[in-house]
Simulated assay, not measured.
Amino acid sequence: MIEEARLVAGFTGAGISTESGVPDFRSPDSPWMRNKPIPFDVFLQDVEARREAWRRKFVMDDLYQGARPSQGHLAIAALISSGRMPAVITQNIDGLHQASGLADHQVIELHGNGTYAACLDCRSRHDLREVRAQFEASGNPPTCKACGGVVKSATISFGQSMPQEPMRKAQKLALTCDLILVVGSSLVVYPAAGFPALAKENGAKLVIVNREPTPLDDIADLVVHAEIGQVLPGLI
């Protein structure tokens, strides 16, 4: 089925990265539950909340600092290198698609990227190593060197608006592909999870590779419940 597609859209979730050692949100006793992201409005309003958000951020970073792209990431990268998949839409924030060899324009990040920080005022990009050094030396949440604004991990927090340009690109890809390949997503987090359904409604084939059932299994053209790294390279 995939080999017959003219234009393939990729869509990935946490499951493609758990095989790299990155914890997901829904596993029992997930470290994300012990270090829950601070809601965006609270982060903005309270300096103590910003301090706690950065503490939790660095705890989580330390848990998977050695993560490397999985066989699933490499399979997606190979499909993009072949020219049949222009980009992958991802719910992940770990940067492992880029680490697999993809350029930034080939990765549509719906929930941002946790490998760097950005000023909420002037949008200046900040290296996390410098941010962490500043935080650990002073104990204070970082501020922007350029404008003095609030600096935040470049992820999309709960309550924060979805990024307009990635959303536009994801919609365009979903509407132009003739097959969308969902890998490692539970397809329950919206609005991101709406793109596979949109592609299907527009006439594209829907292929889902995930360890657990998803809400879209019933309308998919092919569903594979298995370990991603074991089946995706052969499927592609």
Rank of each mutant, 00 (worst) to 15 (best):
Q106K: 09
A117T: 07
A170C: 10
S157R: 09
Q164S: 12
L175T: 00
A170P: 05
G139W: 04
Q134R: 15
F135H: 07
A118N: 06
S153Q: 05
V189C: 08
D94M: 10
Q160P: 09
G95L: 10
R132T: 02
T90P: 02
D127V: 10
S186C: 03
N210R: 02
I89L: 12
G139K: 07
L198M: 15
P166M: 00
F135G: 15
F158R: 12
V189K: 09
P213I: 07
L206A: 08
K205N: 07
L173Q: 12
Q164A: 13
V183A: 04
P163A: 01
D178T: 02
S153D: 13
K169D: 01
V183N: 03
Q106F: 09
A103P: 03
K169Y: 03
T90N: 13
K169A: 04
S100D: 06
F135E: 11
I208Y: 09
I108R: 03
V151L: 10
P163R: 04
L206F: 09
M162H: 14
H97K: 12
S161N: 12
V207L: 13
Q164E: 12
Q164T: 13
A174R: 13
F158Y: 15
A174C: 13
T155K: 02
T115V: 08
R132M: 06
F135V: 08
